[in-house]
Design a protein around this nucleic acid. Structure first.
Lengths: 360, 360
DNA sequence: CTGAAAGCGCTTACAG
DNA sequence: CTGAAAGCGCTTACAG
């Protein structure tokens, strides 16, 4: 029963907005002059500009976003699009569908993107998971799009190209090896580094756990793995997880693989998402991590960093990735030169799951 | 090396857009007629409407979002705003700042909101974590805002009210008990249900773990807790976690509390975020869950559902919550009657962390 | 150095 | 039943 409870009137009448015309009339100037003063265009006396700025401030003038968007033909909006999977392959929590791969990384990325866009005067639109087709993107109405983890031949990418909308991807569309508008990571190199680390900690039979999907991050890590085991004369053990068990349910597959043949001494999961599944499978089979099984991840999370045991992982620095992608996209939108693919930094975080203290 | 690698020209010339004027000229009609045909306004022969629709389709006419926004004075955009905390209280992962409370629930909520908005013809803007002040919201340019978990006296809410922008909150601003534009949950009732459950499982000394913050969800659960322990003649044990340890670091506080006085036999954490911290503290003290300590959460997550042990939690059905909030907001924006506070459904999910099989 | 005019693509009264 | 006109708030040539 706070005394200041507020129930704003539905029909609360908003004060008519202050336009450039009001400022012009107030100063007996033309709207052209006011516009030029405020935007630094034209050739005006500095004193005039100053008068205009002051008056605009006084009158509470705020440029109309809609008028500007209309006039300039740009909405001042960029879209951020997370991976979509077919409805029935959606990992569900009771509360609703969860995006695939790494939820937390996406959240960090989306928020960093919103900040970077905002600082440049743009708003960030989150696309609905089901977006597809020209009509959808037309409704979203973005000047450009950051596409996270496209699949190979991603429909969103080709549709947006047809529409002439600039796109920057985070990680590649595997079907376009020469696509320059991408912020990616050295996934192969990361895989090598992680495998070197596992080997150093004594692993000799390292299984690769990968989703059966066409994300290039996955594909590139897998390629890195293949090169590496071949170079080290080790056996290639690839465990592919069907898309419908893209989350914790992977424990079913892992359990089956762990009991089927000769057991590996380390598991490298490209996806953070499989962490709980692998741990559960090991637990149920009485395998201690890292005692009986080393375990490392191709993506990081708070859970990986602070769970029991903490898991060695590659941190892709998602916030930085998204910032770079937004910056590249804004350059494309604004017609500036763009600096080819960017390979962002990643960091190997060594944690308890590989901390067995064995030196070879 | 792909033969179809595409490097769209920076200056790729977009085909001039098809306007309503083009359709009108094509049919020798006026733009008014075309407009009315397409939008169902006016009094036109059905045959005319049909001809227009067909021609529009043929010519590939798509209404211009910017023109529409300008003309109608609405951007066709709603904003979704997650809680902001002071910079230095941001839980950090190496990859960047993580939003407080439940990341996963927010991700589910944001995506559900994006879908609901999209279905109604709106785009969803994610606000940057640092948003504040009129200028920021002006840049975002939303027709309305969904505000998640406002703090008491939330600055965003008062700023938006001053701007005349419709707002719907998810959970209350505690300083506005009579605010009608809210989708909330029966947090007190949920607390009672959870406590009843713990008691049924044998708990007699139940500690409440709460963040030192003014989220009303927290406050209401705490109120529910107080009422309940008092009604049952049990001791009130409230453990408050300082805002700078809003995440896993809470294990420091929990460890200290667990070793300081007489030990509780159950912990009820209002925030999902404290799950790893509590588990770690128990682990390090050699307390098994649920053997030595029951544990339950006021919010759910995949990790709670599938970790070891799985944790009993209240599922707030975030997707549904967000859908309801978006629907209410759209009614406000479109000037329709709004149906007071909505208390959304929540579900108690009983899991291993309280599964001790003790009947009283 | 400043102003008048056109126009971005629509919708909405209003005429006919 | 259909059309002509005004106007939403700006910027951008272009004139003076």
């Amino acid at each position: 029963m706070g005394t200041d409870a507020q129930q704003p009137d539905e029909g609360a009448q908003r004060t008519r907005r202050v336009t450039i015309r009001d400022v012009a009339d107030y100063l007996d100037l033309s709207v052209s002059t006011v516009s030029a003063s405020l935007n630094g265009g034209g050739t005006l006396r500095e004193s005039t500009r100053e008068r205009v700025r002051k008056a605009a401030e006084e009158l509470g003038y705020r440029p109309s976003r809609t008028a500007l968007a209309f006039r300039l033909g740009r909405t001042g909006t960029i879209a951020y699009s997370l991976p979509t999977v077919e409805e029935d392959a959606h990992p569900m929590r009771d509360g609703g569908p969860v995006p695939v791969l790494d939820v937390e990384a996406y959240m960090i990325g989306a928020r960093a993107a919103a900040s970077a866009a905002f600082e440049a005067g743009y708003a960030l639109t989150l696309t609905p998971p089901s977006i597809h087709g020209e009509a959808g993107w037309n409704l979203i109405g973005a000047d450009g799009v950051v596409l996270c983890d496209p699949v190979s031949g991603d429909e969103r990418l080709s549709t947006l190209e047809r529409l002439g909308t600039p796109v920057v991807t985070i990680a590649r569309d595997a079907s376009r090896p020469d696509w320059p508008y991408v912020v990616t990571n050295d996934y192969r190199g990361n895989a090598h580094a992680l495998l070197d680390h596992l080997r150093e900690r004594g692993a000799r039979r390292i299984a690769l756990l990968v989703p059966d999907a066409s994300w290039s991050s996955t594909a590139e890590m897998q390629q890195g793995y293949r090169e590496w085991v071949s170079a080290h004369g080790l056996e290639e053990i690839v465990w592919t997880i069907p898309p419908e068990r893209v989350s914790h349910d992977a424990y079913i597959d892992v359990t089956q693989r762990l009991t089927a043949g000769p057991r590996p001494d380390a598991i490298f999961s490209t996806a953070e998402q499989y962490r709980p599944g692998v741990l559960r499978a090991c637990r149920e089979l009485g395998l201690s991590v890292p005692g009986d099984m080393l375990f490392a991840l191709g993506g990081d999370s708070q859970a990986a960093a602070h769970g029991d045991p903490s898991i060695t992982a590659i941190d892709l620095l998602s916030a930085r990735q998204s910032e770079l992608a937004v910056q590249m996209l804004l350059r494309r939108i604004e017609g500036q030169a763009v600096d080819g693919p960017i390979v962002a930094e990643s960091v190997l975080r060594v944690r308890a799951s590989t901390d067995i203290g064995v030196d070879e």
